[in-house]
């Protein structure tokens, strides 16, 4: 039987290149109700929703800022035709840059600690053809940032460096998209917002956007409780160099979550809600549940940044 004789639902198109329309599918992610774990709260008038950011192309919340930083760079002239993108990443932003580079036709160089899990490295390098530059795992993300900065300084004409930690386009992406979507999806009912902090772009932008729409919305930074932790993508601010875009006046309170609490919640989300999510999603929901224990009513929205099924299974092994 020829392919054309197959019923439409069985025909698989031969993809020779990525269509730019893929980029139009970044954002407008579903808002999912947490139906079962919320029962821990008893009869309180509390609803909790998760923003399913892994449904973005490239599989994470980072598709939003990555696209915005690239587009703003192109618009400002900082990213000129023929230049290559270079940035440091602990994973998700790198995958997003790699996809966007493949679609828009520029070379992507990603500097990352060598212990980033093999699955992510494979997606960046094999699927999306990015050039990976590995840094010393002992120095974690700081080592990648330093190496990236060095490579950029040595060849500034060659590279466009978005610098996700210090680029306002990072948080603006969330102010202009994530916040508006959450407000519309909850029909303006959102009262509390929760996001983990890595670059802090999600928290900064979404908090600013939501508070502009309703100044009564409270926002919460979810942070690893310990400097040595296993919550991928998040950082312990006190023991780290603070990103330039991080501003403590933007949110209302910080909630600390241990690695064990986050891992346990990831398992519960899988078992009770049927969702395979990364450890930062587990941490964010722990943060929301801690706050929920202190209040009587509210519509809480939590960012679930990625799924990273392979990382959940490996629990940090690589």
């Amino acid at each position: 039987m020829k392919a054309t004789q197959l019923p439409p639902e069985l025909r698989v198109p031969v993809i020779t290149t990525y269509d730019e329309a893929v980029l139009d599918r970044i954002g407008n992610t579903p808002l999912l109700k947490i139906k079962n774990i919320v029962k821990d709260l008893g009869n309180k008038d509390i609803e909790i929703y998760a923003k399913a950011e892994w449904t973005n192309p490239a599989g994470s919340v980072k598709a939003r800022p990555a696209l915005r930083m690239v587009r703003d760079g192109l618009a400002s002239g900082a990213f000129k035709r023929g230049m290559e993108l270079i940035d440091s990443t602990s994973g998700n932003t790198g995958v997003a840059y790699a996809l966007i580079g493949r679609i828009l036709g520029f070379k992507v160089n990603l500097v990352l600690p060598s212990n980033v899990c093999k699955a992510r490295k494979g997606i960046m390098a094999k699927q999306f053809k990015a050039n990976l530059i590995l840094s010393d795992p002992m120095e974690q993300s700081d080592g990648a940032i330093k190496l990236c900065r060095k490579l950029y300084q040595e060849n500034r004409d060659k590279y466009f460096l978005p610098d996700q930690y210090n680029n306002p386009s990072n948080w603006m992406a969330h102010r202009d998209t994530t916040a508006r979507e959450i407000f519309e999806q909850t029909k303006g009912r959102v009262t509390h917002f929760f996001a983990g902090i890595g670059t802090s772009g999600t928290l900064m932008g979404t908090s600013r956007g939501l508070k502009a729409l309703n100044s009564g919305v409270k926002s919460y930074a979810v942070e690893p409780a310990e400097s040595l932790h296993g919550i991928e993508g998040l950082k312990h601010m006190e023991s780290s160099i603070v990103p330039g875009i991080y501003d403590i006046s933007v949110y209302d309170e910080k909630i600390s979550v241990t690695t064990d609490e986050a891992y346990h919640m990831v398992s519960r989300i899988e078992d009770e809600e049927g969702l395979l999510v990364g450890t930062s999603s587990g941490a964010a929901l722990v943060g929301a549940m801690k706050l929920a224990a202190r209040i009587d009513k509210g519509v809480l929205v939590v960012i679930f940044p990625d799924s990273c099924e392979e990382c959940v299974v490996a629990h940090g092994e690589f």
Binding site: V116, M138, Q140
Partner: peptide, 16 residues
């Protein structure tokens, strides 16, 4: 002997 934690997220500003 190398003690290597899983990847924690991004860090911050590097002196230019």
């Amino acid at each position: 002997i190398s003690i290597i934690p899983a990847i924690a997220g991004g860090s911050g500003k590097i002196q230019k």
